[in-house]
């Protein structure tokens, strides 16, 4: 038997070989940011013991205000609901982070699950990125402030979206990743759709 190989959900699109430097030739640029670590953290946001233990283990405060996120150099912590957070970590860090959280939360009513195979991240940028989001979703992305994260509808699926630097980041379920990628690509076609080189974070 051969060793199992981790393949990104958008592997079949061959994005890496099409990637090029962002320039003015396209209005919309995107790429997958694959192989990140995704940890699902459940617990009661009103339980001070849980919040303190989780925040200490993460090294950043657990965001308690709805639809906000906190971040450090190594990770992002996304508020998903009053009792659920998603932690996005650098490639290869999920396992250590999971056991660190589990140790910190031992005896506290909580749940920590490594969901790294279940999600992927998409970079969306370019001068027409906002127009594409308007086509494919119902949320008013123009009003989306930095340090806020929104879960909303994308066609028949959904995504978590936040602003970062020059563009947007979408976190999508593995099983819907190719649907959402095609959906974005189709909406972006009139503006010119380019595969971006080395999508930042």
């Amino acid at each position: 038997m051969s060793e199992p190989v981790m393949r990104s959900p958008l592997h079949s699109f061959g994005l890496a070989s099409q990637a090029r430097q962002i320039d003015d030739s396209c209005g919309v640029w995107a790429n997958e940011i694959p192989y990140l670590g995704y940890i699902s953290l459940r617990g009661d946001g009103r339980d001070q013991t849980f919040v303190t233990a989780a925040s200490n283990a993460l090294g950043v405060p657990l965001p308690l205000q709805s639809c906000t996120l906190s971040s450090s150099n190594d990770l992002k912590v996304l508020w998903l609901s009053p009792d659920e957070w998603m932690i996005v970590a650098a490639p290869g860090q999920a396992n250590a982070l999971r056991s660190c959280l589990q140790q910190a939360l031992a005896g506290v009513r909580s749940q920590v699950v490594d969901n790294s195979g279940g999600y992927t991240k998409i970079f969306l940028g370019g001068s027409k990125a906002l127009d594409v989001l308007r086509h494919v979703s119902v949320y008013d992305f123009e009003s989306l402030q930095p340090n806020r994260v929104v879960g909303t509808t994308f066609g028949k699926s959904s995504a978590y979206v936040f602003r970062q630097g020059d563009g947007y980041r979408l976190i999508v379920r593995r099983s819907f990743a190719d649907y959402i990628w095609r959906y974005l690509a189709r909406a972006a076609t009139p503006y010119g759709f380019g595969i971006a080189n080395a999508a930042p974070g």
Partner: peptide, 11 residues
Amino acid sequence: PHCGENREEEE
């Protein structure tokens, strides 16, 4: 009341 925002019915 959880997200603290007005959202479209599609959600």
